[in-house]
Every structure is written in structure tokens, then in C-alpha cells.
Simulated scan of single mutants.
Amino acid sequence: MNENLSLLLIMVEAGGIFAPVAFILFHLLRSFLFIPVSVVVIAGGVLFGTVWGTIYSVIGLMGVSIFFYAFIDRMPKTQERIIKIKNRWFGEYRNLTVGQIAILRLIPFVHYHLLSFCLKQRKPRFKEYMKASLLTNIPIAFFFTIFGEYISTFTPSFIILILLGLTCLVYLLREKQNVIQWKVFFKRTKEKAAG
């Protein structure tokens, strides 16, 4: 992973005027290189400063969101895996709110595409999905660009305190009710009785 990050830094520094374009495109490549979103966003803050780093990261993350929306339905095996992970982590009938997704994106070990899938389930139409993606990508870009250099100085107890705070926010922003269709509920009940 360090080699990939070094490649990004060299590519951007040598790119001159095309450096922002290279950085934005690197956001798309990040998924295939298994580099966490937070690492790339922090690098954007180091390379371009707070304002431009945040702007370029939001543009890059929006590109990733468009890519995900366009291709997830064409990859059924990947979609099945994401559904299994979603059901295991959040429950089969639980739909995350846009606010919850925005908070969960701030937690580095929660998978970015899992949250994009939850967002697509919540907002299935493209225009709604893109608006919600923008709202959930701004906090991660802003937070990791500005606070990226300070995160390394945090003590483990302070990091745990931050994660507990984010967990409380996710709980407070949850849906207060859950609607399960009759067909789905009774189908599940019959399967349990038969099994």
C-alpha cells in the first residue's frame, strides 16, 4: 500500500497542472488497489491544502459513486456478497438513513462500497442517489483533509472516545420504525416453520 501511495504522490507532484485530474482519477483506481478512502483523502489535503484537497476529494468520491451506481447491478455476485455483509452488519430489514451513512463513512474500517450500496437501496433513483452521495461524501472529505495530520497524534483512548461518539450518532440518526411487507414477513415465517 505504501508503494501505491508513493506512486500517487510522485504522479501528482510531477503532473503540474494535470495533478488535480490525476488525483481525481486515482480515487477511481483506489478501489482496485485496496487503499482506504481516508488515506487518499489525507494525501489530497497534504498535496493541495485544505480547500482544494476537499474539493478534489469530493469530486473523486462522486466519480466513485457514479461508477458504483452504474456497475453494481451488472455484477450480481458482488452484489450478493455486499447484501450478505449488509445483512450481517446491519440486519436484513434495516435501512440506514443518509445521516447514518455520512457518519459511518467517517469510520475508516467500514467499507465504502457497502455504504454506497445501502445508500442505493435508500435512494434508488439516480438523481436522489447522487444528491445523497454528495451529502455523505462532503463530511469524509472535509474531516480527513483537515484533521488528517492530527489523527496520527491521537492517543488510543481518544480514538476510542471518537469512535464511541460516532457510534452514538449512528444510533441517534436511525429510523425509528421499520416497515416489512406482508409477503416478505410471511414468506420468512413459512421458511422458518418448514426448516
Results as ranks from 00 to 15, higher is better:
M1V: 14
E3T: 15
N4V: 15
L5N: 00
S6K: 13
S6P: 02
L8F: 12
L8M: 08
L9K: 07
I10Q: 11
I10R: 08
M11Y: 10
E13V: 11
E13S: 13
G15F: 15
F18R: 11
A19M: 13
A19N: 13
V21R: 06
A22R: 14
A22P: 03
I24P: 00
I24A: 05
L25W: 04
L25N: 09
L25K: 09
H27S: 11
H27T: 14
L28I: 15
L28F: 10
L33C: 06
V37Y: 09
S38N: 09
V41K: 01
A43S: 07
A43E: 05
G45H: 06
G45Y: 00
F48H: 07
F48T: 10
W52V: 06
I55L: 10
S57I: 11
S57L: 07
G60M: 07
G60W: 12
L61S: 06
G63H: 02
V64W: 01
S65H: 01
I66M: 05
I66S: 02
I66P: 00
F67G: 02
Y69P: 00
A70H: 03
F71T: 14
R74I: 06
P76T: 08
Q79Y: 07
R81P: 02
K84A: 15
Y93N: 13
Y93Q: 10
R94Q: 14
L96Y: 06
T97D: 04
V98Q: 02
A102V: 10
R105P: 04
V110R: 09
L114C: 04
L114P: 06
L115E: 00
S116N: 11
S116F: 03
F117E: 04
K123C: 03
P124M: 01
R125L: 03
K127M: 03
Y129R: 02
M130G: 02
A132R: 03
A141C: 05
A141R: 05
F143L: 01
F144M: 05
I146D: 03
E149G: 12
I151E: 08
S152R: 12
F154D: 00
T155M: 04
T155D: 04
F158M: 06
I160P: 00
L161E: 01
L164D: 04
G165V: 09
T167K: 08
L169P: 01
Y171E: 05
L173K: 03
R174K: 09
E175H: 10
K176D: 15
Q177R: 10
N178G: 06
K183G: 13
K187F: 10
K192R: 15
